[in-house]
């Protein structure tokens, strides 16, 4: 999928993707010549169809997680998975602010472990000692975790 700026006859570059709500998927592209930005908006059914293929519009920024599509899509039991560190062996240097914990609690239990691990890996790789909602927002944008 490529976008062409008709005014400049130039290929636009992918800049960002989001799920702003109601199941809509948004991908933004910008013209490198004139700076014009456009957004591709997919309706919920289209979003679901693309998601079900296990592919990412705009490319992958994160390695595939084990059973990623299943865990994102299936209404499953909260205790279906045991994640590394569930037994208390997580890095002692990493803490979660109460706001971040609260936000994590709102993630469905079936997928929570995977989401938690992604944020934790993001923080560790960048030497961030505490995960806050701001860190989570940054990770979402950088890693393309729309919908998590």
């Amino acid at each position: 999928m490529k976008f062409l700026c008709l005014t400049c006859d130039a290929q636009m570059t992918f800049t960002e993707r989001q799920q702003p709500g109601d199941g809509t998927f948004a991908a933004a592209f910008t013209c490198p010549s004139c700076g014009r930005a456009v957004a591709l908006l997919a309706n919920p059914m289209e979003t679901q169809l693309v998601g079900s293929l296990g592919v990412k519009i705009g490319g992958r920024t994160l390695d595939p997680q084990p059973l990623e599509t299943v865990r994102s899509a299936v209404k499953g039991r909260a205790d279906a998975f045991v994640e590394p560190g569930d037994g208390g062996s997580a890095s002692p240097r990493l803490t979660w602010s109460s706001d971040a914990q609260e936000r994590l609690e709102r993630v469905p239990g079936f997928v929570r472990g995977m989401v938690k691990r992604i944020y934790a890996d993001y923080a560790r790789e960048r030497g961030i000692p505490e995960i806050t909602p701001a860190v989570m927002d940054r990770a979402r944008t950088e890693l393309g975790l729309e919908g998590m």
């Binding site: 999928m1 490529k2 992918f14 592919v55 990412k56 519009i57 490319g59 992958r60």
Partner: peptide, 8 residues
Amino acid sequence: DASGIVAQ
């Protein structure tokens, strides 16, 4: 192609 769907 930033998405690279085929490559994915």
